[in-house]
Nucleic acid binder design. Sequence first.
DNA 1: CGGTAACCTGGGAT
DNA 2: AATCCCAGGTTAC
Length: 421
Amino acid sequence: MTSSSILSPNLLLLPCSCRHGASSLKRLQTLAPTISPRRLSSLLLTMKRPRRAPPPSPPSTPPTPQTIHRLHHHRRRRCCEKPVSMRQSLAAESPEWVPLDLAESELSLPLTFPTGQTFRWKRTGPLRFTGAVGPHLVSLKHLEGGGGVAYCVHGNRPDGAGARSAVLDFLNADIRLGEIWEVFSASDSRFAELARLLRGARVLRQDPLECLIQFLCSSNNNIARITKMVDFVSSLGRHLGSVKGLEFYEFPSLERLLAVSEKEFREAGFGYRAKYIVGTVKTLQSKPGGGVEWLTSLRGLDLQDAIAALCTLSGVGSKVAACVALFSLDQHHAIPVDTHVWQIATRYLLPELAGARLTPKLSGRVAEAFVSKYGKYAGWAQTMLFIAELPSQKAIIPSHCLTIQEDEKVERIDKEASVAE
DNA sequence: CGGTAACCTGGGAT
DNA sequence: AATCCCAGGTTAC
C-alpha cells in the first residue's frame, strides 16, 4: 500500500520514483559469487537483531516441516472423532463449530485476514472467514457476545482431527499478543492508543511456499489483481469444497507448480511475474532435499541469512523476502518496508529523514529503527501500525492517530513541488 | 555502488 | 475517448 492509495487522489504530484528500489543482493551475488551469502546480507541489510533476545522457540510448535506435520496428524487420534455417518450428515448444512481457546483480545478475524497477509482467505460471513490450512478447509468465526473464535472443518476429511492443531499453528497461537503488545504500549503511547482500537490484530504463520508465491504475485501490483492471480494458482491445487458459493483449494505442491509454463502464467494475467514464478519454482525444485524442505529450513536461520537466502530467488527482493520471513518463517522481527511503512517511520521513528526518498539503504535503516524500538517482535508491531493506516480501518481510527492527516496532504504536495523545482 | 527506467495489466482519474 | 497514473517491487542498465 503506498501513500497515494491511502490518501487518495490528490497525491498525483508525489514522485513515484520512491518505489523504484534497486535490489541488489541478487545482482551482487552474480557479480561477486565468491562472497558468502552472509557477507552479502550484512553488506545490504543493516537490520539489527534484537540485542539480548534469543530467537523465540515456542515449545509446542517446533519447526517441523509441514509435510511431516500432516503425516503426524494423519496417524493419530482418530478414535476421538464422531462416527463418519453422523459427521457427514451434519457437515453439509450445519458444520460443527468448535471454540478455540483464544480470547477476543488475542484474535480479531477482520483485523487479521483482510489485511494483506494472505490473499487466500475469503470472507464468508460478517464475522466469518474461510480458507485452507494445509489440506483442511476451515472456517473461523467470532462467537457472539465476545466469546472468542470458533472453527469448523468442512468436508469430512478423514484426518480432520489434526485440523485443530493445524489451525492453532496457522494462527500462531503460541504467541501471546497481549503480552507483546503490553511491552510495545509501555514505551509508545501512540501504540497504546492504537492497540486498544485494533485489539487482536495478529501475524499469521503461513505455509512458506504458499506465502512466497503469494507475495511473488504482489510486486508492483494491486490487491484486486493479486487476489485474482492467487486464485489462479490456488485452482491448480486439489479442490477442497465450496463455501457460500466460493471455491477453495489446497495450495498446489511444488511439483504441480513446476508443471506450469511461463506462457500459461502469462496467459492467466501474471504479466512479467510469470517469469519470476517459473524461475523461483525451478530454483526451489533444484535444492538438495527439495524446495519445501529448503524453505522450511529458513525458519531456523538468523533473519539476515533467511532474507539473503530468499533474495536468491527470482522476483524476490527485500520487501517480498521480509513478508515471507515475517508471515511464514517465524522471523518475528522482519520488517517489510514499503512506501507506506516509510511514511510511518519518517514521522515517528526517523523524523530526520522526512522528505527523503526511500532507497534500499534507507529501508534498511527503517527496519533497524523498528527493531531497536520494538525488539524481537518488531514485525508484529509494524504489522499493527500498518493495519491502522489501511483505508478499511479508517472508520475506527481517530484521524489524529493517522500518519498523514487530511489537512496535511496539501502541505505535502506543496513541499514536494517546491523540492522538485 | 547508487540512482533510474522498464516491466504486465486493469481500473480509475483527467 | 485517449491518455496518464497507480498498484504492498524487482531487475537490468
